[in-house]
Write a protein that binds this DNA or RNA. Structure first.
Lengths: 104, 104
DNA sequence: TCTTTAGTAAACCATTTGGTTATATTTTAT
DNA sequence: ATAAAATATAACCAAATGGTTTACTAAAGA
């Protein structure tokens, strides 16, 4: 009954978005991921935990290493959410104009 | 030189996403927005400030009222970011399979 | 077997977040 | 002129966040 991590919250952090960018297309060891940032390895561990908790990253244990792979289909939720508003922002300039007229 | 609010962080909060949903297609008073939630008016004020700081909402002062309109084209940034990874998640099942084979 | 190496876990810390209540401030209505 | 309404501002608070360091555990090499 665990409230599974929210993907919106997961991608809110720039470091986590960078990790996603790094893992897109390639599987990397946790340590290798950490090597790309100026923060400590435990900090990266935490970020990766959050990313796995919402399904954005899959970690496979292999010997003493953790192989991290991006599972980015979880991003579909984000796209779907944002996409539903496309109709609105297409008419945005008009709306703003109306608004300013209304306000005089 | 203000670091303009991050839209990713803005949409991380569920209440703010709900406000966006509420304002999509209709301009509402701050108070009317607040009426749709169980939290105090100052709390809504803060959320709206964050939403305006990243351009997702425009507030027009009209007398003593604030008319809030969604400017959702700012969501394009989110879609664009996520969309760039579509190619990766399409091949996801294979990748995961490879991964498991590799791991035996 | 002994020592690296890879990663986790725990304890801690400062800052941010999301909320509160209470008190202004500014329009509008009476 | 006064009262009510719409919002802002301030002071405050608990919990979450993003980071640290310091062990600890487990696998791999020498």
């Amino acid at each position: 009954m665990k409230a599974r991590r929210d993907v919106f919250q997961a991608i809110a952090d720039p470091t986590r978005r960078a990790i996603i960018g790094l893992l897109a297309g390639q599987t990397l060891t946790l340590n290798t991921v950490a090597g790309n940032f100026n923060i400590s390895q435990p900090a990266i561990s935490k970020h990766l935990r959050i990313l796995t908790e919402c399904g954005l990253v899959t970690v496979v244990k292999q010997g003493r290493e953790r192989h991290c792979t991006a599972s980015l289909q979880a991003l579909q939720e984000v796209i779907q959410w944002a996409e539903q508003y496309r109709a609105f922002w297409n008419s945005r300039l008009d709306t703003l104009e109306d608004l300013l007229n209304e306000a005089e």
